[in-house]
Structures are given as C-alpha cells and as structure tokens.
Amino acid sequence: MNEERREFIKKTSIGFLAGIGVSSGLFLNFLLEKTDASLWSDKNIAGTTRWGMLIDMRKCIDGCQKCVDACRLAHNVPDFGNATHQIAWLQKSPYREVFPTSGEDFAGKERTGKSVPSLCNHCADPPCASACPTQATFKRFDGIVALDYHRCTGCRSCMASCPYGAISFNWKEPRPAIKAINDIYPTREMGVVEKCNFCSERLLKGKLPACVESCPEKTLTFGNLNDPKSEIRLLLEKNQTMQRKPELGTLPSVFYII
C-alpha cells in the first residue's frame, strides 16, 4: 500500500511536470509573455513610446475647470452631481488628497493650498492591469493603460487595486447624466468601469489630449518619455518633479512640478 502510494505520487508529479513542459512548448503564449532582453538594460529605450504628462502647478490657476470640462465633453463623461456615484477621468482635488504621503505637511499655502488636477497615472507597472481578471484593463504598447469596455465584467478589482482612486464605476445608467453629448466618442453603459485613456483616440489623429489643448496657461505638457529630445523630457531634466505615491513602485507616467 505504502509503496503503491509512493509510486503513484512519483508518477503523477512527473506527468504534471512533463505536462507543463510540453504545454509551454506547444502554446507559445501560454503563461509567458514575450520578452525582449534589451528591455531590461534600460527602462527608457529610444524608438519606443511611453506617453507621459507633466503638470506644472506653478502655472495652474485655482478655480479654473477648463481641463476638467474639456475632458468631460471629449469623452461623454456623465455628471451625476453626487459624490457617491460620481465619475471622473480628470478632476481637481485638494493637494493633500492627491499627495497624502508627499512629506509636505508643513509646507506653505502657496504650494499646498491649491487644488491639483489628478488623472490616471498610466503607471509603467500598473496594479489595475494585473488585477483585472479578463484583461479588460491592460497596458498598451505605448505605455497607455487602456480599458476594453467590451469585456469589462464590472467586478471592480481594478478600483480596489488602484492606489490613486483613478477608476470610476457606472453605478447607474450613464447616458441621462451626460449634459452635452459629443457624437465622435462613445458613451459607456451601466455596470462597467471607466477611466482616463490619455486621449488615445486623439493621439491616433495626431492631436494632443483634450485637457492639454484646453489649458490656457500651458500647465500640462504631454509627450514621449522615451524620447530624450521631447519637450517633456527637457522639462523633466531641468526641474525638480514628483510623482503620486512613488513609494508604491507603480512608476507613474504623470509628473508634477509643485
């Protein structure tokens, strides 16, 4: 009996291991993502794209909502007018809500008294994308953390895992709450999550994101973080910038100058 059991365990484990070996050979995309050795040498590779944004709070005017309104209009973001069911891709929130761990507790009002635009950080290592059970939230080739609304089941794993609260859920039917419908972008439906997409539909047409374009003060700079000659890289080189909750290791692509 004992011998038999040992033999059984031996054989099944060999079979199991062999199965894994064979399947990793047969199904090339099974479990393992395609790798590129050059990706490990340096995070920023010339010739590839990683879209990023720099928000210069020295220029941002308190009380101005132009970027928020432009975003709402560009993407048909509903406005329910209540905090519980609110949906926002881009919003302006008090400094301490955006940077709760920045260590600026005693800084003066001119630095921390303003409300700061916050949006999806399009992290290089996005926790939402790995939490999503259907890969509806995924990292695109150009660094944008995109959402495929067609396969979102509305499980809200991404909301739970996002440390920035950048993802909203459609608790109600969104269409009635959209003030002015923009007919070149779809709406969402009840039961899916939504968030900022870095205006990927505008990038496709060679345009800048709606918020960047709408800002009269040029507060927002958008560009390719992997291109050393881009405007955003030059600004990042010259200024002291910060990211939201960098201690979590999500590597946000949105930077701030305070």
């Binding site: 894994i20 050979g25 090339l28 395609k34 590129d36 050795a37 010739g47 794209t49």
Partner: peptide
C-alpha cells in the same frame, strides 16, 4: 527547456513605433 523559452529574446515585444 522552460528557461530557454522564457529567456529567448523576441524582437517583437514593445518595439512598435509611435502611432503619431
């Protein structure tokens, strides 16, 4: 075999030029 599969460099990954 598995290591070979994992570390085999594939040029495809993330090497798509900017859509702009």
């Amino acid at each position: 075999l598995v290591a070979l599969r994992v570390f085999w460099p594939t040029a495809k990954a993330e090497k798509i030029a900017s859509p702009i």
